[in-house]
Simulated assay, not measured.
Amino acid sequence: MVEHKNNVCTVFICYSYVYAGKVRTRRKTGSYEVGRAKRAEILDAATRLFAASGYHKVPLSQVAADAGLSESGLMHHFRSKKHLLLGVAEQRLERTATWWGSRQEGNAKEPVALFHNMVDSTRELVGEPGLIELFVLISAEAADTTTPAHQLYASWYERAVRETAGRLAEGVERGYLRADTNPAACAREIIAVSDGLQLQYVLSGGTLDLVEGVRDYARRLARSLLAPEHLDAAEAI
């Protein structure tokens, strides 16, 4: 009987630990999801405000109020305004990647799809000029290899070059682009021109016509890369 009681106790104790562990896990998971949701809400608020007024003109207290938090509550999720800036940048880069992915899937069979997407993505970006300023600000900080921005941007550029080169290589395989196209080199050039024009846009105080600048470049690039039988498509960019 004693042995039976001990076995029962052992089973009960084991069950209690497992059950308690599940309860704690659920609570932790629930708390984690709530934290993620609030973090996303803060980032959305910061993105709206930074895009409308610029990073330097928006205090943390305004972002906190827009997200329904006190400033100390916001800093529970982001230790400083610079950390919030990095969070906004990371979220924006992911959304940009998602946008490009969806567009490429939808018009991959068009000879000049990539070039049209370059112009369309720029048009969307100009709709939120404050985010262009953010991009330039973080790019400058990313040059310092000791900052979190460096790792974020290094990973992003590696991914952007790889995926853009992949789209160009697909164009070569489909016969849309010339066989002697160098996808990796062209991908780096496309990204460099886009980033350079964004910097000039900020320096001009927003007076530079960024969309037309990218369109002109995309059209010239298409003329140099398209296979002879598809050259006429460049004029539609």
Rank of each mutant, 00 (worst) to 15 (best):
A227R: 07
K57R: 11
E110L: 11
R79I: 11
A236G: 08
S121P: 01
V202F: 10
H83A: 15
Y217F: 13
L43P: 01
S155F: 14
S72F: 12
A169K: 04
L60K: 02
R103F: 03
D232F: 11
H4D: 09
H4S: 14
A222C: 11
E133P: 02
A108G: 01
L49G: 03
A149P: 00
V193Y: 10
L177P: 00
Y17N: 02
I138M: 06
V88I: 08
D180W: 12
L114A: 05
R27Y: 09
L226I: 06
F50C: 05
L84V: 13
E90I: 05
Q62E: 14
E3N: 04
T98C: 04
E173Y: 08
L210K: 04
G196T: 08
E90Q: 13
L69N: 04
E133V: 14
R159S: 08
L177S: 01
V214H: 01
L203H: 15
E105M: 11
A179P: 01
A192H: 08
S224E: 13
A45C: 10
M118E: 04
Y19Q: 05
G30F: 09
Y153A: 04
W99C: 01
L49S: 03
S204F: 13
A184S: 13
G127F: 09
R220Q: 10
A218P: 02
D216I: 08
R178K: 15
G175R: 04
R167P: 03
P148D: 01
N182G: 07
Y17Q: 04
A234G: 05
E173K: 13
G206W: 09
A52Q: 11
L177V: 05
R188D: 03
L221E: 03
A142D: 00
L74N: 03
S72Q: 13
L226R: 02
T146M: 10
G127H: 09
D209G: 09
F50I: 11
A89Y: 03
L84C: 05
A222Q: 01
G21P: 04
L85E: 11
Y19F: 12
G196W: 12
S121Y: 10
Y157P: 00
E124I: 09
G73S: 14
D120C: 07
F12D: 02
K109Q: 07
E189S: 08
E33F: 10
Y201F: 15
W100T: 01
I190L: 10
S72A: 13
G30K: 14
A169D: 03
A187E: 03
L114H: 07
L221Y: 05
T10G: 10
S80F: 09
I132N: 01
E163Y: 10
V11P: 00
F135I: 06
H83F: 13
V119C: 07
